[in-house]
Amino acid sequence: MATTDAQRRSGPSAAYTAPSHFFHVGDTVLVRRSYLHAAAAGVYRVVATLPPSDGQFQYRVRNDEERYERVVAQDRLEPFSAPASSKQDTLIKRTFDRG
């Protein structure tokens, strides 16, 4: 029983890694809409990472078309990657170029 108490007092084992935020300040994300949380469609930028609430990491996000920031749980966010413009330009050029 003494070893169990000593293990508890020493903290987590060396193999344990604490969960961390998936997104970071400056990341571009999409917010999933739900019937409880209406969010303007579009792309949001992570402004700040917040501590967990109800077991979910939270983020402060901002859409350039809104005048305020939103607090959103991590499970409602998706990473956003803009399409590569060079590939798109090449495809358009190949498709519609007549010269």
Rank of each mutant, 00 (worst) to 15 (best):
37 H>C: 09
37 H>I: 07
37 H>L: 09
38 A>L: 09
38 A>Q: 15
38 A>W: 10
39 A>D: 07
40 A>F: 00
41 A>E: 08
41 A>K: 06
41 A>N: 07
41 A>W: 01
41 A>F: 05
41 A>D: 12
42 G>S: 01
42 G>A: 00
42 G>E: 01
42 G>C: 02
42 G>F: 02
43 V>P: 03
44 Y>D: 06
45 R>G: 04
45 R>K: 14
45 R>E: 11
46 V>I: 12
46 V>K: 08
46 V>C: 02
46 V>E: 06
47 V>H: 04
48 A>P: 05
48 A>Y: 06
48 A>V: 04
48 A>C: 08
49 T>M: 10
50 L>S: 12
50 L>Y: 11
51 P>Y: 04
51 P>F: 08
51 P>I: 02
52 P>E: 15
52 P>C: 10
52 P>A: 13
52 P>G: 12
52 P>S: 14
52 P>L: 10
53 S>A: 14
53 S>G: 10
53 S>R: 15
53 S>T: 12
54 D>H: 13
54 D>F: 10
55 G>K: 12
55 G>Q: 11
56 Q>L: 06
57 F>W: 13
57 F>H: 13
57 F>M: 10
58 Q>P: 00
59 Y>I: 04
59 Y>N: 07
59 Y>R: 09
59 Y>S: 08
59 Y>H: 06
60 R>I: 00
61 V>E: 12
61 V>I: 13
61 V>C: 12
61 V>K: 07
61 V>F: 03
61 V>Q: 11
62 R>Q: 15
62 R>V: 04
63 N>I: 04
63 N>L: 00
64 D>E: 00
64 D>A: 00
64 D>M: 00
64 D>P: 05
64 D>Q: 02
66 E>N: 07
66 E>K: 02
66 E>D: 09
67 R>K: 07
68 Y>S: 11
68 Y>R: 09
68 Y>W: 14
68 Y>M: 00
68 Y>T: 01
68 Y>I: 01
68 Y>F: 15
69 E>P: 02
69 E>C: 11
69 E>S: 13
70 R>Y: 05
70 R>I: 03
70 R>M: 04
70 R>T: 00
70 R>N: 09
70 R>K: 07
71 V>L: 08
72 V>A: 10
72 V>P: 14
72 V>L: 09
72 V>G: 08
72 V>T: 14
72 V>W: 08
73 A>I: 05
73 A>S: 15
73 A>V: 09
73 A>G: 15
73 A>Q: 13
75 D>C: 13
75 D>R: 14
75 D>V: 11
75 D>A: 10
76 R>A: 07
76 R>F: 06
76 R>E: 05
77 L>I: 03
77 L>Q: 11
78 E>I: 02
78 E>A: 05
80 F>K: 08
